[in-house]
Nucleic acid binder design. Structure first.
Length: 457
RNA sequence: GGAGACGUGGCCGAGAGGUCGAAGGCACUCCCCUGCUAAGGGAGCAUACGCGCUAAAACGCGUAUCGAGGGUUCGAAUCCCUCCGUCUCCGCCA
């Protein structure tokens, strides 16, 4: 299966073809512009359900001016083009064209002004559109924040401990294998240093997840850049609104790079500006990367331990599918993430995020939350979203359908899983009274057959 | 980093300031012919947006797009500038 997976990618790459081109005047629309124009009311309503108010009067005013101005501009351009052709014909015949040239000159000043104003207007328009989040799917509950999320299922039973449970910090430091002080010396807060068997367990998790998704779930493994450009971040929706969450790498006069906050960015952007062959779909890609987040807005939250770090590892699942398949794919992809938790024997629950708690680009999101005994609660370990055509529209990612017409693909992704948090969950759920950690069965082959991590190990 | 070449539609490839959205070929779709596979003939075949028509399409008209952005010009695929990318040679580092 792993082999057919990589063969599939090579096949797909051949079918990917050459990039489509951006049309500067309308490239940034995120929601279907036609939908906005024709059904502003219902769009505004659905956006309001996720806390995004749309300024009706501003939008309508811009739209009205755009319409008349665009019509007028095109009219003038048409006149200019027609007259210019006449000049060409006259000159070709060696006749005098000065009368016609005077006519064009008369049009010119109005045309220049109209074009300038129209560009300005479209710029404003696009800025508004680019900042609008995706519309929630009808199955998404309306809610203001995480209290509106709905628990859909639970798997596994939290273990009963007959000794005081330690959290992962006490466990890891007790074993001498986890060291935040040194990480802080090297870099600062929100970094971790792991050693020995714990570092190996961390690596084992990555290998286990990748192997499972490639061999059993039909994904093709990819390796991508970790530094990306602005266009890619715009495509998946991190820009323009969430720049402060990202680490930015200046490059003198050149455009800056950004450290990826998730593999979603480089992997999904593989199909940016592409017209895929219908046979290339679905594309199922899995990718392990480090993720870098500034956590600018979460000062003071989860300061202890490795729950919330500036740098963490994640194995990400990405699917590029035909529009009519995306809801099916969403369920499938979420199951793929859940299976990792089940194989690891970690109790979890599946949450359906409400409108107010979903990410910017998502139409529907399931969060998987793993049981953390030390916190006595479930904590997010995976987030699986269907973006429908939202990212595809921003990226101009399309496929050629049966009518031979380019059509936007749907994109999905989900963590499968966040590695650091999985490590935390294993430590806390598999801890023993003596401070050692039992290694889950499925990871032992990756640990040289070891069954536990202990002070002696 | 230095020097040079290049970037045209799904693909290949002409085009060098005027009637070019772009010859020709391949691929694809439809039709005809041919009794199978092969071959031949004809037609069609970029995208987005606007306007008109429409229940919606189809369609018609228009505008923009020849790597991206800017400039010159009545008029730019074609000339100039900047950027991005690809290739070749040299240097440098592995």
């Amino acid at each position: 299966m792993g082999e057919s997976g990589s063969g599939r990618l090579a096949y797909n790459l051949r079918l990917w073809g050459r990039p489509a081109r951006f049309l500067p005047s309308q490239k940034t629309s995120m929601l279907d512009i036609q939908l906005l124009r024709s059904q502003l009311d219902s769009v505004a309503q659905r956006l309001a359900s996720r806390g995004k108010a749309i300024d009706f009067t501003e939008f309508t005013a811009l739209e009205t001016e755009r319409k008349t101005l665009q019509t007028r501009t095109q009219e003038l351009q048409n006149q200019r083009n027609t007259l210019s052709k006449q000049i060409g014909m006259l000159k070709g015949k060696g006749e005098d064209a000065s009368a016609v040239m005077a006519q064009v000159a008369a049009i010119k000043s109005e045309l220049d002004a109209a074009e300038a104003r129209l560009n300005e207007l479209l710029g404003q328009f696009n800025a508004i559109l680019a900042a609008l989040p995706n519309l929630p799917h009808e199955s998404v509950p309306v809610g203001a924040d995480e209290t509106g999320n709905v628990e859909l299922k639970r798997w596994g039973t939290p273990r009963a401990f007959d000794f005081p449970v330690k959290d992962h910090v006490d466990l890891g430091e007790g074993l001498g294998l986890l060291d935040f002080a040194t990480a802080a010396k090297i870099s600062g807060t929100r970094f971790a240093l792991m050693k020995g068997q714990l570092a190996r367990l961390h690596r084992a998790l990555i290998h286990f997840m990748l192997d499972t998704h490639t061999a059993e779930h039909g994904y093709t493994e990819v390796y991508t850049p970790y530094l990306v450009n602005r266009e890619s971040l715009f495509g998946t929706g991190q820009l323009p609104k969430f720049e402060e969450d990202l680490f930015k790498v200046p490059r003198g006069d050149a455009d800056p790079f950004y450290l990826i906050p998730t593999a979603e960015v480089p992997v999904t952007n593989i199909v940016r500006d592409e017209i895929l062959a219908a046979e290339a779909l679905p594309l199922k890609l899995v990718c392990h990367t480090p993720c870098f987040r500034s956590e600018a807005g979460s000062a003071g939250r989860d300061t202890r331990g490795m729950i919330r770090q500036h740098q963490f590892e994640k194995v990400e699942l990405v699917q590029i599918v035909r529009p009519e398949k995306s809801w099916e794919a969403h369920e499938e992809l979420t199951r793929h993430a859940e299976i990792i938790l089940e194989k690891l024997g970690l109790p979890y629950r599946r949450m359906l995020l409400c409108t107010g708690d979903m990410g910017f680009s998502s139409a529907k999101t399931y969060d998987l939350e793993v049981w953390l005994p030390a916190q006595g609660t479930y904590r997010e370990i995976s987030s699986c979203s269907n973006f429908e055509a939202f990212q595809a529209r921003r990226m101009q990612a399309r496929f050629r359908n049966e009518k031979n017409k380019p059509e936007l693909v749907h994109t999905l992704n989900g963590s499968g899983l966040a590695v650091g948090r999985t490590l935390v969950a294993i430590g806390e759920n598999y801890q023993n009274a003596d401070g050692s950690i039992t290694i889950p069965e499925v990871l032992r082959p990756y640990m040289g057959g070891a069954t536990a991590i202990g002070p002696a190990a």
